[in-house]
Design a protein around this nucleic acid. Sequence first.
DNA 1: GTCTATAGGCAGATAGAC
DNA 2: GTCTATCTGCCTATAGAC
Lengths: 219, 219
Amino acid sequence: MATRTEAESGRRPPGETATRILDIAEELVQVRGFNGFSYADVARRLKITNASLHYHFHAKADLGSALVERYRRRFIESLGAIDHEAGRADARLAAYVRLYADVFRSQRMCLCGMLAAEYQTLPAGMQELIVDFFDENESWLARVLEEGASEGSLALDGPPRERARALIGGLEGAMLVARPYDDVERFSAIASQLTSGLAARADGSGAAATAMDEFSRRA
Amino acid sequence: MATRTEAESGRRPPGETATRILDIAEELVQVRGFNGFSYADVARRLKITNASLHYHFHAKADLGSALVERYRRRFIESLGAIDHEAGRADARLAAYVRLYADVFRSQRMCLCGMLAAEYQTLPAGMQELIVDFFDENESWLARVLEEGASEGSLALDGPPRERARALIGGLEGAMLVARPYDDVERFSAIASQLTSGLAARADGSGAAATAMDEFSRRA
DNA sequence: GTCTATAGGCAGATAGAC
DNA sequence: GTCTATCTGCCTATAGAC
């Protein structure tokens, strides 16, 4: 049960059980919050005992940190994939919005958005990692916005980092307020408004139809 | 200790102790979340026993509902006050943004924003009240946007309710992502971007300086 | 790695005296 | 209205057998 999936995904510091713990805990945190789930919840779903969990993650704070760490890493990897696949900056921005839409569709909150709400109750280690997550998102997005402005695919008015922050806040907020309605359309309608102001303008006021509009509509 | 402050504030279905319980619990929820505080926390701060709390609010769910009810009522009252005081729609929008800025400045999350994150873990009664809060905010804001468009103080492109939803999401999200940084400027910078797109345009692209910009800058 | 057993504390909640 | 005392259950965490 231990020597099987080692070669399946390359890197795996956490063992297979640890990975499954992270998977379950991740969903629980995204749905219920860090203060809204317990080791017992994870143990029940994994059909393992509470004590076994502590073997893999000594304390809940350790599990929490591992959770944010993995989520952050995967998110950054997704950004790398977007850079690799998509061409124009407006398409990359649209893909970024789709990352959030995908999370919302799975009826979860963004892990770090949820933890931002609970921020003041979290262990210091988790707090630092959460800040890292937002900082790195901001850097990536700011770069996309700048490149979009350079190549003419995005209309950027204002400092890119400030615009990036507003976008991240807007997307997190869209998830948050659409949550009680459990309605993807509600999320998407907000998201498309966030990006429509960045659509490159052919004329004075109206936003031209771009690949980005296409994407964010369908997100 | 009971017959003193009765005439101080007019209406008071909850007694004085109940009011103080609500005050303390409100802060706790806005900072720590509904799942992040306990009756014992409130009891400690109020210097009263756990059992006494149950006299005023039979179960935690009842306290939670009373909390949302009061927050909603007060928020709506604030909107009424804005309607009464402020003249132009852009000034009313700016005042609306200031409501959120004031909450953020007190190092709290919007009560209903916090509860939106925890939504799926909350008692049904609280869930309904939270939806009411957002619905009423949306209605009020949509009306302001429409009036702004009519009188020419706001540039409204798109359905007012959709724009209202995006604004609410943007403000809640701004609070959320600025939280880990504990930085009012970070909140305000996002908020001003949310409203700048609505500033009435004198010419084609640049946003004119209006009372709204003034307010949201200083918020 | 997983288990049983258990510690020690805190959660929400109730009974009944004052 | 507030108290003491108490219940039951869940929480995080540990010891030690297998």
